[in-house]
Measured scan of single mutants.
Amino acid sequence: AVSDRLIGRKSVVMEAISPQNSGLVKVDGETWRATSGTVLDVGEEVSVKAIEGVKLVVEKLE
């Protein structure tokens, strides 16, 4: 599936994300709604860990 190619990809937070609120990330020039178990600020680099419905699950790059 097209979405499977996103797992493991680097992306950049475009709208802040917290455990309570989804935000936005940009992956390969496309904007996606995303969630995370931690707070992520605009501009942080993250990695796509999973896809749940139409949202990406991301975490901060170490």
Score class of each variant (00 low, 15 high):
1 A>D: 11
54 V>W: 11
18 S>D: 08
10 K>Q: 09
41 D>Q: 13
3 S>P: 14
6 L>Q: 03
45 E>W: 15
27 V>A: 04
24 L>V: 11
53 G>C: 04
3 S>Y: 10
55 K>S: 15
6 L>C: 05
3 S>G: 11
37 G>I: 11
57 V>E: 05
38 T>R: 07
49 K>Q: 08
17 I>G: 02
50 A>I: 04
53 G>V: 03
53 G>W: 00
50 A>R: 10
48 V>K: 01
10 K>V: 13
24 L>K: 11
38 T>P: 01
14 M>L: 14
20 Q>I: 10
38 T>N: 10
2 V>Q: 12
28 D>F: 06
41 D>L: 13
58 V>C: 02
34 A>I: 01
24 L>G: 03
8 G>V: 03
35 T>F: 03
12 V>D: 02
60 K>H: 07
49 K>A: 09
22 S>P: 14
11 S>Q: 01
23 G>S: 01
13 V>I: 05
37 G>M: 13
46 V>E: 01
42 V>N: 03
50 A>K: 08
6 L>W: 04
16 A>F: 08
40 L>A: 05
51 I>F: 06
4 D>T: 12
38 T>Q: 15
27 V>K: 02
29 G>P: 00
1 A>R: 12
10 K>H: 11
49 K>S: 08
19 P>E: 05
19 P>C: 08
47 S>N: 10
21 N>V: 14
9 R>Y: 04
43 G>T: 02
24 L>S: 10
55 K>P: 00
33 R>G: 14
10 K>N: 08
23 G>D: 01
16 A>T: 10
31 T>L: 15
8 G>P: 03
32 W>C: 10
33 R>W: 14
2 V>D: 12
12 V>H: 06
31 T>S: 10
37 G>Q: 13
9 R>C: 10
14 M>I: 15
17 I>E: 02
13 V>Y: 02
40 L>Y: 05
53 G>E: 06
23 G>P: 00
38 T>E: 14
62 E>S: 13
55 K>G: 10
33 R>V: 15
56 L>W: 00
28 D>V: 03
61 L>Q: 08
54 V>G: 15
29 G>H: 06
2 V>Y: 10
14 M>P: 02
30 E>I: 09
1 A>K: 12
58 V>H: 00
22 S>Y: 07
29 G>L: 05
21 N>L: 11
60 K>G: 06
49 K>H: 07
28 D>W: 05
21 N>R: 15
13 V>S: 01
57 V>C: 06
38 T>A: 11
11 S>F: 07
51 I>M: 08
38 T>G: 09
10 K>C: 14
52 E>L: 11
48 V>S: 01
58 V>W: 00
20 Q>M: 12
62 E>Q: 12
22 S>A: 13
19 P>F: 04
55 K>C: 15
41 D>H: 13
57 V>D: 02
9 R>T: 06
56 L>R: 02
62 E>P: 13
32 W>I: 10
30 E>C: 13
61 L>T: 09
46 V>R: 04
37 G>A: 14
11 S>H: 01
61 L>M: 11
31 T>Y: 15
37 G>K: 13
15 E>F: 03
5 R>N: 09
10 K>R: 13
3 S>D: 10
50 A>Q: 07
51 I>N: 04
16 A>E: 07
53 G>A: 04
62 E>R: 11
